[in-house]
Computed example of a mutant assay.
Amino acid sequence: MIFMTNRHETNLAVTEDALKKKRGRPKCFDEQQVLQKAMLLFWEHGYEATSISDLTQALEITAPSLYSTFGDKEGLFYRCVDYYLAHEGCPIDTIFVEAKTAKIAVELYLYDIVKRLVQPNKPAGCMVVVAAMNCSDATQDVQQNLLDKRIKTKEKLLKRLQQGVEQGDLSSHAPLQEMTDFYTTVIQGLTIQARDGASSEQLHKVVGHAVKAWTLF
Rank of each mutant, 00 (worst) to 15 (best):
L40V: 12
P91K: 12
S53Q: 12
K159P: 01
V118W: 00
L40R: 14
K27A: 13
V14K: 05
A63C: 11
I2S: 14
D137P: 00
S65G: 04
I52D: 12
Q202C: 09
A138G: 15
L161F: 09
D137M: 05
M1E: 09
I92S: 15
A105W: 08
G75D: 08
E166L: 09
L40W: 06
E16W: 10
R195D: 08
I192R: 06
L161N: 00
K100N: 15
I151L: 13
T94P: 03
M127I: 03
Q140E: 07
G24N: 15
A124L: 05
V14N: 07
C90W: 00
S53L: 10
M179R: 00
T215S: 14
G46A: 09
V130G: 03
Q143L: 04
L41F: 04
D72K: 14
N121F: 07
F29T: 04
A105E: 07
G75S: 12
V118R: 01
C80M: 04
Q202E: 14
Y78R: 12
L170F: 10
M133H: 15
V14L: 08
Y84G: 05
V114N: 02
I52H: 12
P64W: 03
G189W: 02
V34L: 08
A213Y: 15
Y111D: 09
K152P: 03
R116Y: 04
A198I: 01
K212R: 11
T69F: 04
E98Y: 07
I61S: 02
E16K: 13
K73G: 05
L66C: 12
K159W: 01
A194M: 07
V118Q: 01
M1S: 12
K103M: 02
H204T: 06
V142A: 06
H87S: 09
V97P: 00
L161Y: 01
A13V: 04
S65F: 01
I113W: 00
A138R: 06
D196L: 08
K27F: 08
